[in-house]
Amino acid sequence: MSDNSLRLVWVYPDLLSTYGDQGNALVVERRARQRGLDVQRVDVRSDQPIPTSGDIYLIGGGEDRPQRLAAERLLRDGGLERAVSNGAIVFSVCAGYQILGNEFVNDMGERQEGLGLLDVVTVRGEGERCVGDVLADIDPRLNLPQLTGFENHQGVTHLGPTARPFARTRLGRGNGTGDGTEGAYNDTVFGTYMHGPVMARNPQIADLLLKLALDVNALPPIDDRWYEALRAERISAATQPA
């Protein structure tokens, strides 16, 4: 971070913003401003170069063809990999998460190379699409409260040795591998299947990204009344029998 101004980069909204993913950018931006930070939000379309000097990069979910196009264009661009080697933080959702891995299956049913920023491989699930509310415990090292979210995907994501599961599911399918893992992370790169968007229900994730970007252990508290009310409602709705 430079000059007290946080550079927030939203990657390819023209391709990867299908499930309200803009919400994550809005929540991070709002919570940074509430802490007195100056935020520069940069929305990068897929025909523009990815800036390499951002602090936080957000990537959303999308449909199958846009996902293929986004992976091709990101790989050709190379900016995101350079930003990560500069220490940038990346938070990705669903199709974006799959793209950050080593490999995924695209809309033509072919295996396609990802950016290799997370040690994961995604294949197409044979079973029913994973749709519905999710409840999960986030890796205790990250010191975050329970994860509540909404998933909607067909992919099954296998974690390699250098990726840690982001969370362990209590409810829902997460990575879809049947081992209870949900999402993955590695140093400063995070991936999850949670839509929602996930930060509306889990603002502490937005704060984690801010703390990593600012290199601090704590942030001034802000009024979380409505976030907490929504969290409580969704957690209770997910645990009650339908």
């Binding site: 309200g20 909404f150 839509h195």
Partner: peptide, 9 residues
């Protein structure tokens, strides 16, 4: 639709 994520759009 049971997903409310569209509110953010």
């Amino acid at each position: 639709g049971t997903d409310t994520s569209w509110l953010w759009d």
